[in-house]
Design a protein around this nucleic acid. Sequence first.
DNA 1: ACCCGATAGCCTCACTCCGACGAGAAGCGG
DNA 2: CCGCTTCTCGTCGGAGTGAGGCTATCGGGT
Lengths: 227, 227
Amino acid sequence: MRGNLFAVAVDLVVLTVRRDQLCVLLVRRGERPYESHWSLPGGFVQADEDLGDTAARELATQTGAATQDAVQGHLEQLAGYAAPDRDPRGRVLSMGYLALLPDLPDPQGAAAFLPVEDVYGLAFDHDRILADGVERARAKLEYTTLAAAFCPAEFTVSDLRRVYEAVWRTEIDPRNFQRKVTSTPGFLIPTATRVTGGRGRPPQLFRRGPATALHPPMLREPLPVPV
Amino acid sequence: MRGNLFAVAVDLVVLTVRRDQLCVLLVRRGERPYESHWSLPGGFVQADEDLGDTAARELATQTGAATQDAVQGHLEQLAGYAAPDRDPRGRVLSMGYLALLPDLPDPQGAAAFLPVEDVYGLAFDHDRILADGVERARAKLEYTTLAAAFCPAEFTVSDLRRVYEAVWRTEIDPRNFQRKVTSTPGFLIPTATRVTGGRGRPPQLFRRGPATALHPPMLREPLPVPV
DNA sequence: ACCCGATAGCCTCACTCCGACGAGAAGCGG
DNA sequence: CCGCTTCTCGTCGGAGTGAGGCTATCGGGT
């Protein structure tokens, strides 16, 4: 079999929304290369693992197993990165994976959720992987119901709207947003309970419905046409 | 560095439209395993290559270098496949790449363009890679201008419509389709020439414009909501 | 020469969806 | 009780789309 041999790793772009900001899980490296730099969490694919197995295992390890067990959250493959010089130790191919999770308690050890805007200078080519993950997440909110993956099991329409606003860094009219999401069949399932204690009229709580696609999609700003 | 070592290959899903049918480029394997089975064209990543380099090199090799030089055509990364048992020779990670090309002359040697509907029983997990590539292409026609990548440099609105109909296996109203694509800024650039010789009123020729995104998208049948 | 079928291209109409916005409902704090 | 906030429902106009009528312009048959 011709061709060089690669070490194959999985790097995770774990996104969540905290205090109305899109945040990513980073770990501070304790070894060379890039010692003490921030990097995406990840690890090497073991002997009997498929790529998704590695991604799920790393996600459970880095965030606490409880989250992975729950049905909530979303994990999907992002892209492969294999530039010849991306790792000084040798040829490493890294599969990026994108995870969308509800807000979690602060992680243990050398890991933290940081706002994606403040992140720069990650180890290896992780800046690029992070950018690709954020762009994928932004695009997927347009035509899927994945925004609910950022929310806990029960949430309000305003919670969901703040997810869109944080991920897209835009403002959305609450009244039109409410009409859009509540009139999409299978997106939201109303529950009997309401939330009290906050300001204003108590909102209704919803659970995620079975719909995965949004037809028609929720449109961001139309991109300007390059001329 | 922990972890097993992998051979890394690139497999191409080369799609084109021939005689109003979506076709894929396949090669008949001349060696074991899967000897004499059809498979996707591909090859191993060499020492100083990035994944895209390998994909472009293989595409040029399999279709004739002239096509690759031309600006037309489209090549993008699809997904990574690394199931532990996907290759009996050992651990091989394969990056799928998706190429969309105008119709080409029949390839040399053990290669051929076959209609995707007739394709079954490919080597390795190439059935799965092909299915992912076709689904990606179908989805991308909805919200990008990539359908033009299936057309030659100059083409008519009907040519473009037949691309959509072949890829989606649907029928589209020619009048509404014409309104949609000609009113999207930057999608089509009219040329001075017209086509004569066919039946009916001679159509106008267009070139691809600079637009890459379709806002709003061209909608297929809305998917039924699972309940 | 003439008609006919086929394709291209333009137009209208009704409907849906969306953005902008008004207004009522229902909580909280002073 | 009064303002303030947030939730929720309605209204209105414009954009986009499916359905379909109509004309323009070719090749081919009679």
